[in-house]
Design a protein around this nucleic acid. Structure first.
Lengths: 194, 194
DNA sequence: TTTACGTTTAGACAGTTGTAAAACATTCAT
DNA sequence: ATGAATGTTTTACAACTGTCTAAACGTAAA
């Protein structure tokens, strides 16, 4: 992101950032992302174009900030403690809750932006990278030949795949069912025992 | 794709499509995708802009055609026979070979387009969807609770993840090692036996 | 050769993008 | 309050995008 939220961020800046990101989310529920011009966005947010470019490199940069705000609502960081299976499922549950709490927004957005659109892609990729970091931080000491980073990416992309299936692909699924999916996909042993 | 390659495609059309896609691949080895304008592309390919829009909706549509041509070089379709593990690994090997045979091109492209760029994303997504179809077609009758489509997506995204790691992430890996990775990620049982 | 057809091209259009310089506000310590 | 520093807005600009129309072109049948 062009604008680093870890910086000081004056009160005015916060207001501006918030205005742009909320306007973007509203417009995403109304039309496809490609049809949203920076012009129209500034019009709707009632800020001059130059201000937009003050804070963001481009449309995509604003998107990143939108996802950043969404992600921030849930405190995922606290999980990275011990690497037991229980803690993994705890992380998974928090992720499920994060998406579930934005259910309506996601439905609205997907109705104008297909699953293979740039927008959905950008969304998935953002959260994949967030979770990859998370999983890398709490990686088990490995008995595998596969590199740790690759395993972490595999975990996070699988979790995101399930979230995409449930919340963007419109396949209503309870948290318990979702937990079964993630176990089946990431630990086939689970199914042998049952 | 705007231009359906299953159509009649006259000799002239083939030449034009080829010229545009080859020019694009060359330019991707020289600069980031965002910096390649349709103008410059037509300049380099020596075709008028109107001709470009005759064949493609936009830059991204041309990209899709580039990946289509690449994909077409290898005959992946013949695999979808019986759903044994051996046939899965056969498919995996063909995919490995496909990427390996374009090793130099991929290196050049990645040197100007980071792994999280729109370009690489588009590339990964194209092949993921191709492989998802492939794996859906040859899916095992399931004993899992997880929906077949989701499992197929999981297979293909995992395979692509490994390909990305090896060929785009610059982690030289032999085919044999790659096979170990895919077994470890998709069938943890494998590591228990060893 | 002429006619007719579809495709390719040139040129122009309104709208968008990202940047840069200068004018304008705010904040805050002195 | 004054002035310096910082951030915001205005305005202007060159380049690009996607679409459209009409003219030019090639080719194949009459």
């Amino acid at each position: 992101m062009k604008y680093d939220p870890a910086q000081k961020t004056t009160r005015g800046a916060v207001r501006t950032l918030k205005a742009f990101s909320e306007t973007m989310l509203i417009m995403l529920g109304e039309k496809p992302f490609e049809k949203i011009s920076v012009n129209a966005l500034c019009e709707a947010a009632d800020y001059p174009r130059a201000t937009f470019y003050n804070y963001f490199d481009d449309k995509y940069d604003l998107l990143t900030y939108c996802w950043y705000r969404m992600r921030r609502e849930v405190h995922l960081d606290q999980i990275s403690g011990d690497p037991t299976d229980a803690s993994f499922m705890a992380a998974f549950d928090q992720i499920y809750h994060l998406f579930d709490s934005h259910h309506d927004l996601l439905i609205a957005v997907v109705s104008h932006n297909p699953l293979d659109s740039q927008l959905v892609n950008h969304f998935i990729q953002y959260f994949t990278s967030v979770f990859t970091e998370l999983f890398t931080a709490r990686a088990k000491p490995q008995e595998l030949k596969t590199p740790v980073e690759l395993v972490a990416k595999h975990y996070s992309s699988t979790v995101l795949l399930i979230m995409e299936w449930i919340f963007l692909g419109q396949h209503p699924t309870t948290r318990e069912e979702a937990e079964v999916y993630v176990r089946e996909l990431l630990e086939p042993r689970f199914t042998c025992v049952e």
